[in-house]
Amino acid sequence: MTLTGWEAAFFWVFAIAALVAALLTILARNAVHSALFLISTLVAVAALFVLLGAEFIAGVQILVYVGGVMVLFLFVIMLVNVGAEERGNEMLFNRPAQVATSAVFLVLLSLGFIYAIRQGYEGLLARDNLITQEQRAEAANRRHARQQDLRPTATGTSRLSQDTQLVGASLYRFAALPFEIASVLLLVAIIGSVMLARTSKQEAATDDLELKDEG
């Protein structure tokens, strides 16, 4: 699997954008800025999904994460005021010793990851007979040839992807039970967040109790 030409250029643009925005997410002083940088990261990762041929997942990522989860985050940031951190009265990070320990751990973690990816990728290529350039080109051509069979769009400039159709078919054919469990999970999440976020006055009202001292 190799990206070539403009795809490679866009890969580097979006990969670097995602990493820089992710770094700024955890470094920003204002929580609202963090949320906006996280939205940038999510959009850049969605663009990487498009480059990988997963158009449906990219759309879901934009709709669910950026349209739903991040709006929820922004609402919660609005509800809890975080003024002290913005004004510089509060420390942004944990104590220096904790930060230093985390840094050492994370450097070791990333070195371990790079080592594992390097070793594993070589093994993967050997397993799938993709050592030489010709074998890789042949594998890429199969996908390319299949894309030439897809129906053209009305404008005739591009072709209609079958990604959504394939994902939907697999979802219902092979993952019907997890799909149903996911719907139950979402129901639990709805009820749970309503229960957690209600005030003590609302709790007393629904439980038919008298309020004693607060409310």
Binding site: L38, E85, E90, M91, F93
Partner: peptide, 11 residues
């Protein structure tokens, strides 16, 4: 591991 703000930790 490093931030103190719980909302940023969730992000």
């Amino acid at each position: 591991l490093t931030r103190r703000n719980i909302i940023v930790i969730f992000m």
